[in-house]
């Protein structure tokens, strides 16, 4: 493989021979010849095409519809619900409690790292890192950073309610159910 001298315009013939004399070694950097322009253009267009492709691929990990189960569901309440004893529907992470003012639903997903808290007479406790919550979900002991969420529910008649886990309501929101 031989290295050809770069073609230059004839106009600077004199200065060329000067610079050639100074540039004794092939180690010295060379100015970009004009014919390299197309090569650079190809390189940069390939690079920008790849960049745009990566941007497109970055949309892939998030599906337009997430495959998680529906967050809104109907629950049939048991015939007798003692005051202050939580009812947890099969396969759901929500505690439904009845007291004199009505019915309310508290999420049993710990606000620390997502473990499922257990309802106890004193409130809720998390098995993973020992967080404790009061009966209304407020933090009694760390490391949970915030209170358990209260979830929206509505009376759908006939002893059933509709719970929407995706909708958080203010603590203390209770619904009268016949």
């Amino acid at each position: 493989m031989t290295v050809k001298p770069h073609p230059r315009s004839g106009a600077d013939e004199a200065s060329r021979s000067d610079s050639q004399a100074v540039r004794a070694s092939r180690l010295d950097e060379e100015p970009m010849p004009r014919r390299d322009f197309l090569g650079r253009a190809a390189l940069w267009s390939a690079a920008s095409a790849m960049f745009l492709a990566v941007l497109g691929i970055a949309r892939l990990p998030r599906a337009a519809v997430l495959p998680s189960p529906s967050k809104k569901y109907r629950v049939t309440l048991p015939a007798s619900m003692a005051d202050g004893v939580a009812f947890v529907p099969q396969g759901r992470s929500v505690a439904i409690v009845r007291d004199a003012d009505g019915i309310y639903a508290i999420s049993t997903v710990c606000t620390h790292l997502g473990c499922i808290v257990k309802h106890t007479p004193e409130g809720f406790e998390c098995p993973c890192h020992g967080s404790r919550f009061g009966g209304d979900g407020h933090v009694v002991r760390g490391p949970a950073p915030k209170a358990l969420s209260w979830l929206a529910l509505q009376d759908t008649g006939g002893g059933t309610i509709m719970i929407d886990e995706g909708k958080v309501v203010a603590a203390g929101t209770k619904v009268k159910v016949a």
Binding site: G91, S93, H112, L113, C115, I116, P127, C128, H129, P143
Partner: peptide, 25 residues
């Protein structure tokens, strides 16, 4: 998914971090 393992432990080489996580996630 409804009953957490208790205690729920990560692989051993992450348990040092889990010890710290128990204070601030």
């Amino acid at each position: 998914p409804n009953v957490p393992e208790n205690p729920a432990k990560a692989p051993w080489y992450f348990l040092g971090l889990q010890e710290l996580v128990a204070f601030s996630a």
